[in-house]
Amino acid sequence: MIVAGIDAGSRAVKVVLLSTDNGTEPGVLASDLEDSSPDQAAHAQRVLDRVLQEAGHTMQDVGFVVATGYARHLLDFADKAITEITCHARGVQKHLPNTRSIIEIGGQDSKVIHLDAQGRVEDFTMNDRCAAGTGCFLELVARRLGVNLNELGELAEGSKQPATISSMCAVFAETEIIGLLAGGQAPCDIAAGVQLAIARRIASMAGRRLTCPVVFTGGVARTRGMRRVLSEAIDHPLALSPEPQLTGALGAALLAADHARSTTI
């Protein structure tokens, strides 16, 4: 049987297909992602159809669909909606089963998820009220510095002395950045300063409750240098989740497999 996990996030729609045949451990059949569009439900269906087609399947072959992400309740073709917290935890567990803490930084929010020794979500903290500390803040800064998001990490690596970005508000932080540029501060120092500001904000959210191993996931985890800066800020080693942007969708697919299995039994 095939099951699907769809992470309909604020910045991208991510799809993971799993094959659950023969009672074996589910294996990834196909996956993909696309930037989000206003009609999340239709868009998610299109991405799912395309991924299915590329894998040589149709919607009829899909036994169970779990939707996650902020638009999860809009996907009426999904069998179940589960939050990103549970899905990310499950997705990370698949690759790194001993994980006890997860830091996820996505486009519009960031989360710290605590797992117990059995891998169950024990507790979580979220920032979804403030753009500073999220991926969209990095995008904003990249635009202001005239680079694309992928180049921002590379730019930051050239910094010898990261700039101090003190504002707690993304809008005021942008004003600060304009001031820093006008004052002749090197763009690489500003890029590094922004990474540091985000990392400190996450560290403040995490407090001292992190238990090792700590895993970094979500779209921002792909940004070069971010893992190192965050690791220093939280004062813990930080493992990177494989394909971090797809972790939520993978978790959703794994939970879909669980549901499909329990329904079949």
Binding site: Y70, I82, E84, I85, T86, R120, V121, D123, D128
Partner: peptide
């Protein structure tokens, strides 16, 4: 509300 709902749902899932 969407953010509150996500938090509450996650708590229920836990």
């Amino acid at each position: 509300e969407p953010a509150l709902r996500t938090r509450l749902e996650a708590l229920m899932e836990i």
